[in-house]
């Protein structure tokens, strides 16, 4: 039950959406883009988000693609997470999103909504960070393709009115050896204490982490530590821990110290698993 009122628009093209946003802003309104809308609905209810105009992106065909060509995978930002799972095109992403919320909620939560959301876990971005994917952004000059590393730093970095339309991932990456481990406070339900996504690309381990800090990240210092050839898995994990960004979360899911304990064990397990694979 949302205590405030808003208008609702459902544009059919990228241009229409972008122009709507600008004309509404110029008219002194506070528009937001809406795809699954789960955060807008739930945070709005408890006065943690306000808008007076909602622009629903679900009706824009580009935002609903799930398409694989000879070189790339294109996924629309307004695809529900269950659609990403059922498409079975990106194994790491599939495993990753299966850990988000719950199955029914994932019928509504979208890929773009998770990546661009206010709730800071944004776990679905990890596979894209690891794969050096590109984002298709709608802006004033129409669509542009940008490296994820240029537009995602802790959270999506967009100019007012810009929005995420699609992700583009190189096909080669889709078959990279990978794991996605989400560790929870207790048993199988809830937000992560930490989520780690990892993949081997060109014999180097890539790591993305969510739930440790109030943002998801991929850190080259951390990866350098984990790829240090002379060290044992435990030593690598230990070294990687010393390169984690700040601040480490300390909240109702876990204390900061415990998060690092869990992370270290998780990293060690991943290293051991990949070493095993390498030996085979």
């Amino acid at each position: 039950m949302i205590p405030f009122d808003f208008d609702y628009f459902n544009p059919e093209t990228v241009q229409e959406a972008y122009h709507l946003y600008h004309s509404l802003t110029e008219a002194g309104r506070e528009p937001v883009y809406f795809s699954g809308g789960t955060e807008i609905i739930t945070l709005g209810r408890i006065h943690q988000l306000y808008t007076d105009a909602v622009i629903d992106l679900k009706g824009i065909p580009e935002c609903r693609t799930a398409q694989l060509d000879d070189e790339h995978l294109y996924l629309g930002a307004a695809l529900p997470l269950t659609a990403v799972e059922e498409a079975r095109l990106f194994p790491l992403l599939m495993k990753n999103v299966k850990e988000i919320a719950d199955h029914t909620a994932r019928e509504k939560v979208t890929l773009g909504g998770n990546i661009c959301g206010n709730i800071f876990y944004r776990e679905a971005v990890l596979p894209f960070l690891l794969s050096d994917s590109s984002f298709v952004i709608a802006g004033k000059d129409g669509l542009k393709v940008q490296s994820i590393h240029d537009v995602f730093e802790e959270h999506i970095q967009l100019a007012p009115g810009e929005f995420l339309v699609q992700t583009i991932t190189e096909k080669n990456f889709l078959t990279a050896p990978h794991v996605n481990i989400k560790r929870k406070r207790q048993w199988d339900t809830g937000y992560p204490v930490v989520t780690v996504a990892a993949a081997i690309v060109g014999r180097r381990l890539r790591i993305g982490i969510s739930g440790l800090c109030p943002f998801p990240f991929r850190s080259y210092e951390v990866e350098a530590a984990l790829n240090e050839p002379a060290l044992s898995p435990e030593q690598k994990a230990e070294l990687a821990i010393s390169h984690m960004p700040a601040p480490i979360l300390n909240d109702s899911e876990a204390s900061a110290e415990y998060r690092l304990f869990v992370l270290k064990n998780t990293l060690t397990d991943i290293l051991v698993a990949f070493e095993g694979m390498g030996r085979r």
Partner: peptide
Amino acid sequence: TYRPMHYKE
């Protein structure tokens, strides 16, 4: 965040 037991647990 306050989580009762779920089915698979």
